[in-house]
Amino acid sequence: MGKAVKIAIAGEGGQGVQSVAEIIAEAANEEGREALYIPNFGVEQRGGVSIAFLQIGEEQIGSPKFQKGDIVVALSDRAVRRTRQYVDENTTFVYDSSIEGVEDDLPKNAGRILAIPAIEVSKKELHPRVFNIIIMGAVIKATGVVSEEEARAAIEKKLGYKFEQDPRLRELNFQAISRGMELVEKAQ
């Protein structure tokens, strides 16, 4: 077996990073894999950077906390600065290309750095409310921790009751996953 894949997703409150981590964790769990998801909490719960720590593997996960992530995603300038500490030469660092003024703050030691226009795509092509689902697509593409089908099923489980009322939402969410995956593919 390989080691668990370690993922950190960070953003501003309201960007939905926690629900992304939760949906991926549940999707992995549904597949029968071991997942451990822990939100950062504490004073940062209010008004700070929100970080989700997620690990997915074949066996029970070890420590809930990790020092360096395999994938670190930062969705705001503050999140970029806050998550640098989780990056080393094995890390893929993903950030949104619309974040300004962070050129000097990007973790230069990262194995690779991917800038993806998730915010722009969500605004122009899809809908701002599915921004986090685009990020989810990006994460599953970059890590391979769950398949697109599993991700869809997990979203269906989570938001199915909303889709019942408005089936267009389902399409919108599924498109968001695909677009997120494409963005990572292109950036690589």
Partner: peptide, 10 residues
Amino acid sequence: DGYQAKMRES
């Protein structure tokens, strides 16, 4: 502990 309280696992 707080980790066990707040984390999710199977």
